[in-house]
Simulated scan of single mutants.
Amino acid sequence: MRLRIRLILVPIALFMNFVALGQEAERVSIALKDVSEGLVGYIGVAAQDMNTGKQVFLNGDEPFPMASTYKIAIAVTLLNKVESGELKLTDMIEVQDEEWVLSDIIASNFIHQGVSLSLANIMEVMITHSDNTATNVALRLAGGPDAVNKHVEQLGIKGMHIDRTTSDYSRDFYGQEPGRENMAEAIKNLSANPGLANDPQPEFEADAKDKSTPRAMLNLLTFIYEGKGMNKENTAFLLGVMSRTVTGAKRLRGLLPANTPVAHKTGTLGGISNDVGFITLPDGHSFAIVVFTRGSDTPLADRDRAIAEVSRTLYDYFLLMPD
């Protein structure tokens, strides 16, 4: 009951106060900072009601490491190539030996040469399981980081740039060479140091590469939702894939009412825990949400809780203040 009071009665009183004071967005930002205090190092938030256009920001123009949330930009660029006829979702794509890095689906389950997947399945596991080998393949097909950046710029989005493949991440963060022949060693090294993936690396986070502001990621999400640059079928395809994400169950989804539809993409690396996507309210309309964090030396469960608290606070806000 105490948890229910915190998550429902307190926000109702809080938001009624927002109305009286007429400073909704600013006070919601303060609430977001309060609910995440002590759980993460530094947090950035951007959100938008997809019906009204109402927005909320907390450190919205600060650059944050995207980690695996950058895979959304890759997916959008690939679907642009599908739109132009350069690629088809049914195209069979061979995974090249040098593209193998530690990943939950491909590298963990297919140990032999001769792996080919359709473009649709490459994108599926890249998003739903955050498969890094699939991401290497997808980025190659997209034309590399420069091609993704060019497409993002053509959409008019500023404040986001992609610089590395997941092979580069493997070298820069884990000190591990990519390639199918190196997977046994990579698995052994990670098993010997299980905390490596979630231990902060301040120098890595300070690197200017692969950064986005929450506002820039929010702009990308709104382009997806509104179907700009993609037809209805491809928009539905990407949103459908994002709705099947299995990572980060305790982040955006963590404190929402049961069976709330969420379409999202997580990112986790060192002191970075992120989650971005769309949440559907009971009346059927959605809001886009971006939660970026960095510099966290707290337990992963605390970081997840921070994202969940932000998500629930914004859920209540957009539900109770629809106009």
Rank of each mutant, 00 (worst) to 15 (best):
M126R: 06
P299Q: 05
L141N: 09
V19N: 11
I93S: 01
N109V: 12
G159T: 04
L238K: 01
R253L: 04
A258Q: 12
G60Q: 07
A138Q: 01
G143S: 06
L238F: 14
M66C: 09
N198T: 12
P214N: 11
S130D: 00
I72H: 08
D323Y: 06
E203I: 14
N17D: 15
V82Y: 14
S311G: 05
T128I: 14
L78T: 14
K211F: 02
V241I: 15
L320P: 03
D104P: 04
P261F: 11
I289T: 08
H264M: 13
K81T: 13
R305G: 00
L3S: 08
P202S: 02
G227R: 06
G22T: 12
F15N: 03
D172V: 03
G229V: 14
G284N: 14
E99Q: 07
M50W: 08
G179L: 02
I74D: 02
M160G: 02
Y315G: 01
L221S: 08
A13N: 07
T235I: 06
G114D: 10
A138K: 00
P194M: 07
I272G: 12
G254A: 09
V262K: 05
A308K: 07
N198K: 00
A46Y: 14
P11Q: 04
D210R: 00
D49S: 12
T222V: 15
F318C: 05
G254N: 14
L21T: 14
G248P: 10
E233G: 04
H264Q: 15
P194W: 07
S84H: 01
T165N: 06
G195K: 13
D316R: 11
L314V: 08
Q48H: 09
E185V: 05
T268H: 09
Q23D: 03
N274M: 02
K71R: 03
Y174V: 00
V152P: 05
M321V: 14
A306M: 13
A197R: 00
G85I: 06
A197S: 10
E226W: 13
K250S: 07
P63R: 02
T166L: 09
D302V: 04
D168E: 15
D210G: 03
Y225P: 04
N193R: 05
S243C: 04
A197E: 09
E26M: 06
T52E: 14
I127A: 10
Q176N: 06
F287L: 10
Q23G: 02
D97N: 07
L218K: 08
L221W: 07
S116D: 09
T313N: 02
A288L: 04
D283C: 10
L314I: 11
D210L: 00
I93V: 10
T293I: 04
G175P: 05
N136Y: 11
H129N: 08
M160C: 07
F223C: 08
P65G: 03
F15K: 03
I72T: 13
G295D: 10
L87V: 13
V95D: 15
G284E: 14
A186W: 12
E86G: 02
L314C: 11
F173H: 15
L139W: 03
S191L: 09
A258M: 01
N231E: 01
D163E: 01
I106C: 07
F18L: 01
R303E: 14
L89T: 05
